[in-house]
Write a protein that binds this DNA or RNA. Sequence first.
DNA 1: GTTTCGATTGTG
DNA 2: ACAATCGAAACC
Length: 201
Amino acid sequence: MPPRRTRLPRAFYRRDTVHVARELLNKVLAMPDGRAGRIVEVEAYCAGIDPAAHTYRGRTARNATMFGEPGHMYVYFTYGMHWCANAVAWEHTPGAGVLIRALEPIAGVDAMHDARGGVSERLLCSGPARLTQALGITGDLNGADLVKGAGPRIYDDGTAPPLHPIATPRIGIRHGLEHLWRFVVPGNLHVSPARVKMVQA
DNA sequence: GTTTCGATTGTG
DNA sequence: ACAATCGAAACC
């Protein structure tokens, strides 16, 4: 018998972005075709004070979704080839959300492999662009409602977030490294291989 | 209008 | 360590 899935209410996303990031650990991201994975790594990007956030310099055509209603999905294109997915989440200041960085695959794994080519299961969804490729998320889904609608959803299947998630600096950014806003499920094997950016000596 | 660079990944 | 690859942001 499959675990019961509870839809996350809009109010879930309408809270402090860092808090939502931690609460999203161990939730389930599911696509309409059945592909689904457990969220095991996230990063919070905050409004106003956070120079690493796309929204730091204000609203643009690209980041407009982040200024919209919490609980929608902000999908952006980067490095000329990759899509990344966020859950819009903010309480008082618009323009913030949670980057989903890694999933543990739990359903539709064959379809994920078809979408990703011959990669190991461990690397199937272990990175922000890997998981969008595995699930088939592209810019078409920018703005999709994760709470209502027929598109991607985030569910609670009864698995609580870790009591003590690992907190680290965020990956691949140049500013805002002092904030420990990357959160990881301790011991999970599907976390992205944390590449430390090499610095020229 | 032109240039720079990125919330990354795969390969060498 | 570095190329791939292109649109948005930044700069003039």
